Simulated assay, not measured.
Amino acid sequence: MSLLFVNGGAPGQARLRVLGGLIVDAAGPGAHGETVIDLQGDRLLPGLINAHEHLQLNALPRLSYRQRYERVGDWIADIDARRSQDPLLRANQAIPRAQRLLIGGLKNLLSGATTVVHHDPLYPSLLEPGFPVEVLRSYGWSHSLELDGAEHVRRSFQATPPEQPWIIHAAEGLDSGDEFEQLDRLGCIAANTVLVHGLALSADQQQRLMQRGACLVWCPGSNLHLFQRTPEVRPLLERGCLLLGSDSRISGGRDLLAELPLARELAGLSEAGLEALLTSQAAARLRLNDRGRLLPGLRADLLVLPRGLKLSEAQRADLRLVMVGGRMLCADPAFASAGGPGLLPVQVDGRPKSLERSLVEALQGAAISEPGLVLEPRPAEALA
């Protein structure tokens, strides 16, 4: 299918063509039967990149059992101690992992995040063609020094090719600054290192991180929920050494969009800077050379934002269209016909939308649902 977007509301985006999952030259002729979508001043953006997530942990609400934590290990221990007794935790664990991962994927899709860094194993369902978002595949990772131990962490880093990012939770609590020094002694702070959280990093440690060419993923909502603090990230931001992640809902907010007002306020980001942080800068840091910008030859990961609405003020129901690899997966009814018969009517936070058929069918058979997403009743034969 060839799609031509016209009358986009941003400079240089008046026309954009999608063909075969890629952005192609909009100046040339389209394919036979090309569909034209008139944006009427709405704005095209590259799909957002969520730099930190645990996709299987989004069917739970925020969890906390103390007013404030000092160590992330104490929070983990509090959850572990309740796994067998807490009805909420037990019920969630009983749900098949593939369904929990699906909810995590939908959470991101509906918020305009088309690429997600899943900080856990690459479970098979994440790699299936019908999963709602693209998941980072070429990377190395360890959970943390506390859970994995120094030797496992060292081996994980050494096994990761230098052209791929290597990701680890580090300095997440208020008293964990020594984790940076341990990682440094292990030889794990290099140009492909991606630390997550970094709440306890000192100014000197941040400088050394930047000098090595490494970067930090900032999850302000999660930090504030657990520790009532978040790191000072402006030096990292100025050097291009910062990424933004939502974390999962057990510590983070509703989705990536919920992080944006926090990020703007706490880091003094401009709107253009915020958009770059979630698109081109994230793609560069994660070695994703095929996305993050609206250029011919790159993946057609797109979202459409209503004319005049700032990204930092957007809610997920405001997004008029989300496309992943040229596939229109969620759209306003006005755009849905361009996606063909594969889109079915739903509601997102009370607004009519259309969602890709296979996702609707997967949700109909699932034991859990995505809050705010309502499937429209349809005759059984329509879903056959």
Rank of each mutant, 00 (worst) to 15 (best):
L309R: 13
L295A: 14
L321N: 05
A282L: 00
A284V: 04
L305C: 09
L302M: 10
V322Q: 09
R287W: 02
L298R: 14
R293F: 00
L305D: 07
L295T: 11
V322T: 12
V322E: 06
R320N: 12
V304N: 09
L309V: 04
L302N: 07
G297T: 04
A284K: 08
S312F: 01
A284Y: 00
S312A: 15
R307H: 14
R287P: 00
A282C: 07
L319S: 14
V304L: 11
V324A: 12
L302H: 04
L277I: 03
D301M: 05
V304I: 14
R307T: 04
V324M: 13
R293E: 15
D318N: 14
T279A: 08
L294A: 10
R307F: 03
K310V: 03
A283I: 03
L298C: 12
D290F: 00
L311M: 13
A276E: 11
L298V: 06
R291P: 01
R291G: 04
E313H: 14
L305K: 01
V324G: 09
R316S: 11
L305R: 01
L277R: 02
E313G: 15
R307D: 14
G326I: 02
M323G: 06
S312H: 05
L295H: 07
L303K: 06
G297L: 07
T279W: 03
L303R: 02
K310L: 15
R316E: 14
V322G: 05
Q281Y: 00
L298Q: 11
L277D: 04
Q315I: 03
V304S: 10
G325I: 00
L309Q: 12
G308R: 05
Q281V: 01
A282D: 02
R316G: 07
L278P: 04
M323C: 15
L277S: 06
L295P: 00
R287T: 05
N289K: 11
L278S: 02
G325C: 10
A314R: 07
R285K: 13
L294E: 07
A314L: 08
A282K: 03
R307M: 13
D290I: 00
D318H: 14
L295N: 02
A300F: 10
L303N: 08
L277Y: 01
L303I: 00
V322I: 11
